[in-house]
Design a protein around this nucleic acid. Structure first.
Lengths: 127, 127
DNA sequence: GTATATGCAAACAATTTGCACGCCT
DNA sequence: AGGCGTGCAAATTGTTTGCATATAC
């Protein structure tokens, strides 16, 4: 695996953001550092970083969003699709289920976020 | 909400299948009952049934798969992408987190299924 | 030097949408 | 009769891929 500047920029963006960016969001930020970086390269690097376990993915509304690998869960608002980090949640994990090897848990809490509970909020999706 | 025959067929397919079908899989089965049903209609009905909480969704490899609402979790094999139902898993659930209302937990166990652990299995993705 | 990653654009796959028409109520 | 759901096809969206070039090692 080559250590290109594109790869480094992509990884740095994920590790320095708390915004749960999707691929295009990463691309927009990456262009600040490398003005001609291509969207395809961003996708390729996000993909390989994910495979290596250097970053993690959270799927929201059919779109992949990326996050650093520090262990935590997520809450996703059903109205505005905002993603909120969830720490300090104790969830017992199986190592195995009926002969199937379990090495990962994807856990997403879903509901209505604090802001969308207010009646003056019209639940506009933030896209 | 109108009770059309298309809507009824789609719901029946989900409730009578244990295969975790995606939209196209539902479409293929639906055409047995209604030969000229359109894929768009299948998508529209799956969407509204999901919104109403009549069926649930499990996302695998970027594709929505549908399941009845009986409470259970899922295991997804990282190699072959097979979905296996997981029952009898005790997971404590928050009703609220930092002011955010939690009404749903999406929990997916991931790993290598029993079959893919055998060395003669080449991990062909079942698509 | 050579393999691998890149930029670019075209291809792809899943899903959504616009429109004219048909069917439930 | 009126409106919502449908079939159909085209449009969108997110993502992947082929290819010639550039770059890391």
């Amino acid at each position: 695996m080559k250590n290109t500047k594109q790869r480094k920029v992509v990884l740095d963006i994920i590790n320095n953001s708390d915004k749960h960016l999707d691929a295009f969001g990463v691309y927009k930020l990456a262009r600040i550092s490398i003005s001609n970086i291509s969207l395809g390269t961003v996708y390729r690097n996000l993909g390989s970083l994910e495979n290596e376990g250097a970053i993690q993915v959270i799927m929201v509304d059919g779109v992949k969003h990326y996050d650093k690998i520090i262990p935590h869960y997520h809450f996703v608002c059903k109205k505005c699709l905002k993603i909120i980090d969830v720490f300090d949640l104790e969830i017992p994990r199986l190592k195995e289920y009926n002969g199937n090897l379990v090495d990962d848990y994807e856990i997403v809490l879903k509901g209505i976020c604090e802001n969308c509970q207010k009646e003056d909020n019209y639940g506009i999706k933030r896209k």
